[in-house]
Design a protein around this nucleic acid. Structure first.
Lengths: 234, 234
DNA sequence: GCTGCGGTTTGCGCTGGATCAAAGTGTCCC
DNA sequence: GGGACACTTTGATCCAGCGCAAACCGCAGC
């Protein structure tokens, strides 16, 4: 296996405050993996053998209900940790992770966690901060689902994606990986039909442009107004 | 202030593995507070000055939307931590906590967290385990809200309460604090009207008994079947 | 006991979105 | 170039659950 260069991870929030030597030691324990599009990184209910850092690509974290319905919990962007069940004392993954595009990830054996967290307190703190953010996000989504109408929820979901993975183009801000109506529906608890109708309505109003597995937000501020429930003139 | 006895907290999951001397040292840093019914323990967005352990009573954790709608995030039972924003590197509380009945809590200054976590690793681990559980719960609720009908969601909510705070009576399992239709509605993203209709329907089928701010689950297994979406005969 | 208040029940009409169905369209692959 | 497949659009229908309104009830305080 080729040696991993510390420049891969230096500068990431989770590794802040670590010396180059520390980074090398951490990297020595990791394996680098290539995950093809639509392959799973880890499986819901599966034994939590590893935890991961996404280096490149985009990963969908999905929960499946007993009757087969899927809900997209979040998207992971490069530089983020995933599968960190071990850090929270769990032994199975609570969800599945599927590559939305071809990905590169680093994987550490899960049982290494206590060791790493002990040796590198700033790594531990960084991880817990991530967890805190995700807990808060999850609770925010509970509030959203409990109080908002579908239109607002879809608007919020798009804005979140724009913020997380938006890439500026001349048309507006493009969500930087293939995403279908179905995916958006699974993020917001609605159906692909309703999402499709919303997007065409928004497109007519000039808020977004969208195509096959592709969404570009043209006027984020107006979409935001919509998400907040403020009526949109035009 | 009266000295706090370690028997108050010995045996709680979060303090597992600590010596009596350790417990005393931790307790020395805490203040004990009495919170009257409907008083708030901490406020959403407020500066996270402390973290808390509920000794006695029941606390409602509530998020309020900009337009004033409330969502009940969870109920805290005796022995549980709350307001642990500090442990996750946050500086404000993401929600409010309101006493559902008269309560007794222990409060530690928030800035003591790194100190305590450093000195008592098992306390830190215990806390993170709690956080892990809550994250998972929150995600489970996202899935619930995204995929289930109101009837199933309300059934799930009641079952969760029963498990958490149920007290056996001759009629069935009573939820051990005053809870209104409105409260249940705010836990499940519906209206008190719908909750009321559901409860009367269930009462007719003999699944539950309920009254003013009071719910008793008579047949948990049948309610569970309902929550899972399996039709109920009779 | 009566009165007031907060909580609960119930009826009714309406509508946001789900469901079902079918036809369009972009893209990859042979 | 021509399928074929996956994704998307659009129409038509239906109903779960919301909003509104009004009555009802249990409990605390006077």
């Amino acid at each position: 296996m080729s040696r991993l260069d510390r420049s891969l991870i230096a500068g990431l929030p989770v590794f802040q405050g670590m010396t180059p030597a520390d980074l090398d030691r951490v990297l020595q324990q990791a394996r680098s993996l290539r995950i093809a599009k639509d392959q799973t990184v880890f499986e819901q209910e599966g034994d939590a053998h590893s935890f991961f850092l996404l280096l490149d690509g985009h990963v969908r974290v999905v929960k499946t209900t007993p009757d087969g319905q899927q809900v997209i919990v979040r998207y992971i962007s490069p530089g983020e940790l995933m599968g960190i069940a071990h850090a929270l004392g769990r032994t199975t993954y609570p969800a599945s992770a599927v590559a939305a595009v071809d990905c590169v990830v680093l994987a550490w054996p899960g049982n290494l966690w206590p060791d790493l967290a002990g040796s590198f307190p700033s790594f531990a703190t960084g991880t817990y901060k991530t967890v805190g953010t995700r807990l808060q996000e999850a609770q925010a989504r509970v509030v959203e689902l409990a109080t908002e109408q579908v239109e607002q929820r879809v608007a919020h979901a798009l804005l979140r994606l724009v913020k997380q993975t938006g890439r500026k183009t001349e048309e507006g801000i493009l969500i930087d990986f293939p995403i279908s109506r179905q995916d958006i529906a699974e993020m917001t608890g609605t159906t692909l039909h309703t999402v499709s109708r919303l997007l065409t309505a928004w497109e007519e109003k000039g808020l977004v442009k969208s195509g096959r597995q592709k969404v570009t937000v043209v006027e984020p501020h107006r979409l935001f107004a919509l998400a907040e429930g403020r009526a949109d003139k035009g």
